Amino acid sequence: MTRIATAAAAQTALLDLMRAQRTVFETQQQLTTGKLHPDLKGAGHRAESISAAYGARDRAEAYKFSAERVENKMEITAVALDKLSEAATDLRVAMTTIDGTYIMSQAREAFEKARDALATQYAGGYIFGGTRTDIIPVSANSLDDLVAAPTAGDVFQNSTRRPVAKLDDQLTLEVGLLANEVGEDLMAAFKRLAEFDADANGPFDGPLDAAQQTYLQGEIANVLNAFDRINDQVGLNGAMQSRVSSQIQNQEAKADYLTNLIGDLEDADMAAAATRFQQAQTAVDVSARTFSVLSQVSLLPFLR
């Protein structure tokens, strides 16, 4: 009976040793990885919640990245609109002078500035091209090209649709401005000036005559209208920027919340894990000694 009891005790000690060794292994993994479990299989009933939280966080981060790209494009758009606005101002100021040669020289420079603004690119595409980003939105390279076109609108080759961006599960926005919307009025002013310069009342060369001064006085109002149209688009772009910026903050806050939630579900308490590791090591030592002693128990000393 003593031998049977000793064998049972040794078996119990062995099981205790194995449990302690497993605890040492598990807590050592926690201390190494910082996670409660090496994978979702070990998370049990929490696995579904952890997986869902990861998916939601990944979506939030993807939406944030998309919104940041849109915001960057809008910042470039704001710079381009400022340049376009400067071109309109340069043209208006030139028209207030009485030197025709200077007016046309400044008009050509202003046209080039406006064209460059409308041809601004971001990430390899034209920002004012709409959904067609592979081709320059304005085909006219000079005032002569404008004169040759039937109307100012004919030099624009942007699409009629704006790009769309999905910034949340339930939020899809049209983003970006179209070249003809922001620049057609200004290009029409350039075209009228160049046509007047080329017709019987031209050219603008040297001091202005009465007919030329009268024309310019009336045309300045049209340039001011074009300037106002550009500033309207500046405001529209700014309002959209504000909305996108708010969306970035929302997605960032959502991603941070989900990261904390994931941590609560799967991160190990490092202080508690260290304590359990030390306790488990002690238990291994004790269980090992106990098993060793019980494994060597014999009745021979009592039979002598």
Results as ranks from 00 to 15, higher is better:
139 S>Q: 11
245 S>G: 08
58 D>N: 12
266 E>V: 11
173 L>G: 07
132 R>G: 10
198 A>H: 14
94 A>M: 04
166 K>N: 03
153 G>T: 05
122 Y>L: 12
45 H>C: 08
19 R>H: 13
275 T>C: 07
195 E>I: 11
290 T>E: 10
259 T>I: 06
217 Q>S: 07
105 S>E: 15
230 I>P: 00
254 K>H: 07
40 L>Y: 13
273 A>L: 06
261 L>G: 01
107 A>Y: 08
14 L>Q: 13
132 R>M: 02
74 M>I: 06
244 V>P: 00
210 A>Y: 00
129 G>F: 05
280 A>P: 00
164 V>A: 11
174 E>Y: 08
81 L>R: 02
175 V>F: 05
22 R>Y: 15
218 G>D: 06
175 V>R: 08
144 D>Q: 12
103 I>V: 15
206 G>F: 06
118 L>G: 02
135 I>Y: 09
262 I>V: 15
85 S>T: 07
269 D>W: 04
263 G>Q: 09
169 D>Y: 05
17 L>G: 07
268 A>M: 01
146 L>W: 02
38 P>W: 03
21 Q>L: 13
197 D>L: 08
64 K>W: 02
244 V>A: 07
30 Q>A: 04
23 T>D: 12
23 T>K: 13
291 F>Q: 11
98 I>E: 09
35 K>L: 05
301 P>V: 03
225 N>Q: 13
291 F>E: 07
275 T>A: 10
267 D>C: 11
86 E>I: 09
219 E>F: 07
62 A>M: 15
164 V>C: 05
202 G>Q: 01
162 R>I: 09
57 R>A: 04
179 A>M: 11
55 G>R: 14
155 V>P: 00
137 P>L: 03
130 G>E: 01
36 L>N: 03
272 A>P: 00
276 R>H: 06
235 G>H: 04
192 R>V: 06
237 N>I: 04
41 K>I: 15
182 V>D: 00
41 K>W: 11
23 T>P: 05
148 A>F: 10
28 Q>L: 06
2 T>M: 12
57 R>N: 15
242 S>Y: 08
212 Q>E: 12
24 V>W: 01
99 D>W: 13
244 V>Y: 00
102 Y>V: 07
295 S>Q: 07
147 V>M: 01
21 Q>I: 05
231 N>Y: 12
105 S>H: 08
63 Y>D: 13
